[in-house]
């Protein structure tokens, strides 16, 4: 390296050029690393490099030698630039041994929990109905006999109450045994047209076993308008079940009895596991019982103060646990309430 303030005389210029022409190219070719090459670049072409000084000193050289030396210096500079580039390219092609990194180690996943399978099914079902213009509503869990029975056309001392075994409190209130209570609560407050979907917890003092629990979840649906027919109910339910279980789903409607609907219907769906051919899930029947429904009984309209001659509607109800068990292949209802983390995590 040289002192930048220094100026070469023409003899030194010649010496420097001679030396560089002789040695520089081979030194570049011998460089083995990018660092080494960078050092050489600075030595040969940097601001403080001798060649740079040569070029700066040309002004002081006698005119007859100036153009010859100038040409030599510039030529050398270009050639060194090329050689450096060339060598850099060569070096980059040589594979450097990298530090060993075990890429089979697992990634750092952001930790995520899951919503409960019951919530998941409720969300799937309510989403479908919300897209069909139903409104999500919630009701109370502790109720009076009026909302759970009387207004729903279930008289006292009537055997129809047998299907609705109920928990009672000291003050004669009860834990709702069905989400149909929400129908009454909403109709009392609002006028048709009405379309509601109401998920929630219900309670019946059943002995707990693989398919029964004293608390479970239902979803109630209700549509009331001037001319809502039984055929509309059939269409709506089929659309819903196809959205939930797939396009191939077939439905079967059987007469049944519910005190709050007339006509009443029990809905069977073709088994989505065996395509209605018969399997262990559907008990070789090809059909699965999935929900109850019907046209709203005029007595229910009367109980909420509607003009039973001016409105018509349908209602339906389904058990969330049953749908979840079918969809996920769960065979013991108790798993839902045991909340084993290993169970919950499966529904991420």
């Amino acid at each position: 390296m040289s002192d930048p303030s220094e100026v070469y005389n023409h003899q030194t210029i010649k010496d420097v050029l001679d030396e560089l022409e002789r040695t520089a190219v081979s030194r570049i070719a011998a460089a083995e690393s990018a660092e080494e090459l960078e050092k050489l670049r600075l030595e040969f072409l940097g601001k403080k490099a001798r060649l740079s000084l040569v070029l700066r000193s040309l002004g002081g050289v006698p005119p007859e030698e100036r153009s010859g030396l100038g040409q030599r210096a510039n030529l050398l500079r270009r050639s060194l630039e090329e050689r450096l580039k060339e060598q850099s390219g060569k070096l980059s092609k040589v594979l450097k041994p990298r530090a060993f990194l075990d890429l089979t180690l697992p990634g750092t996943r952001p930790e995520r929990g899951a919503v409960h399978p019951i919530t998941r099914i409720i969300a799937q079902i309510t989403d479908i109905f919300e897209k069909l213009n139903f409104e999500w509503v919630e009701g109370r869990e502790v109720e009076t006999a009026f909302y759970n029975f009387t207004a729903l056309n279930i008289p006292e001392d009537h055997p129809s109450r047998d299907s609705f075994d109920t928990f009672f409190t000291k003050e004669g209130h009860l834990l709702r045994s069905q989400t149909s209570t929400v129908q009454i609560r909403v109709m009392e407050k609002r006028k048709p047209p009405l379309r509601i979907i109401a998920p929630g917890r219900v309670y019946r003092p059943d002995t707990v076993d693989a398919s029964h629990s004293f608390m479970f979840h239902q979803i109630e649906g209700l549509m009331v308008d001037e001319k809502t027919t039984f055929s509309d109910l059939k269409g709506m339910i089929h659309v819903f079940l196809r959205a939930l279980f797939g396009k191939k789903t077939k439905v079967r409607f059987r007469p049944h009895f519910f005190p709050f609907t007339e006509p009443s219907v029990e809905v069977d769906m073709s088994c989505f596991i065996c395509d209605a051919k018969g399997c262990s899930v559907c008990g070789q029947k090809g059909w699965l019982e999935v929900m109850g429904a019907g046209s709203v009984d005029p007595n229910v309209f009367k109980a909420v103060g509607y003009d039973a001659k001016a409105v018509q509607g349908f209602a339906f109800g389904l058990g969330v646990e049953r749908i979840a068990m079918l969809k996920y292949g769960i065979t013991d209802i108790r798993l839902f309430y045991e909340n084993d983390i290993r169970f919950l995590k499966q529904f991420q």
């Binding site: 409104e135 059939k234 089929h238 007469p255 046209s295």
Partner: peptide, 28 residues
């Protein structure tokens, strides 16, 4: 009531022979 007879008519006619329709939806 008359509506009880409607159910009887529907039962004998066959629930499966009642067509599936989509209700008219008035916005709320």
């Amino acid at each position: 009531r008359p509506v009880d007879l409607v159910e009887e008519v529907a039962r004998i006619h066959g629930y499966d022979r009642i067509p599936e329709t989509m209700p008219e939806i008035r916005p709320v």
